[in-house]
Amino acid sequence: MAGAFPQFARKAPRGASVILHLVGRRAASALLTLLLVSIVVFTISGLLPGDAAQETLGQSATPAQVAALRHEMGLDRPGPVRYVQWLGGILRADPGQSLVANMPVRDIIAERLPNSLMLAGFTAVIAVPLALAMGIAAAVHRGGKVDRVLSLATLSMVAVPEFLVATLGVLVFSVKLLWLPSIALVSSEASLGDTIRSCALPVMTLTFVVVAQMARMTRAAMIAQLDAGYVEMAELKGVPFGRIVLWHVMPNAIGPIVNAAALSLSYLLGGAIIVETIFNFPGLASLMVNAVTSRDMPLLQSCAMIFCAAYLLLVLIADVVAILSNPRQRA
């Protein structure tokens, strides 16, 4: 839209440079954040009772076995040395070897990350449009029946814990009706249809969890804009109401909405632990919990880095979208 007016055309490159500048600054601070997070994760997990050697050998460990395995795993070296070595590996793009699985961390994550991304992707594709539709509908019919029904629905979605949603879903759709599998059987062999069927209940549960927050945020942002003078002006000019909402109000409201969406979606990767547990979904969140309980430091660190990076990336995208949609923020 800017290209049509010469005075805006001059501003466009400036906007681009602002964004590039922002992205560059954010990338630098993201690296620093990742470094700090890795130090914190390493330090705190080091405080947990027991180490990978003890957890691997379990209840039946003898001191001699523990010492031998500790040596084999390299856990007999001081913590800072191990950390620096891990850091060196990461800088060479090598996340190291899992202490417990005896496999490269890269391979383990390569198996799980696509599953988590798929789950998050399916959920986002369903949840974001649904939340926008609900939020817009509620805002437009503010105070009316539709608004009250939607508010009640979203509030109860926030209030109901996801394990209850998941368990009820399984009881109804799997055990009683036998429509959908009760556990997610995701594998490379499964056909697309099977995979979608497997993911149906987890996606439904996660949608339930994330949609409410986004819908309420959309409603609030839209209402703030619907009260603005320019909306009234557009209405007086005879612009159709649908067009006002989508073309005039939406770009102004998008900032907070995208922010809410980014926060909700970042939850899908790391926060899906309950859904992963109930549906036995082989995702990253349960992998990280595994890594914590088995004290598998390289694996734990890599998972933490991925979650942290995903979060930073989503927040960055939200900021960029907000700036693009609102020229005032480019200054």
Binding site: S182, I183, L185
Partner: peptide
């Protein structure tokens, strides 16, 4: 061979015919 650590999910999977 799979594992379903959650007992309720495990029983549900059996009853739903998933295992």
């Amino acid at each position: 061979l799979i594992a379903i650590p959650d007992e309720v999910s495990r029983v549900n999977a059996l009853l739903a015919g998933d295992c």
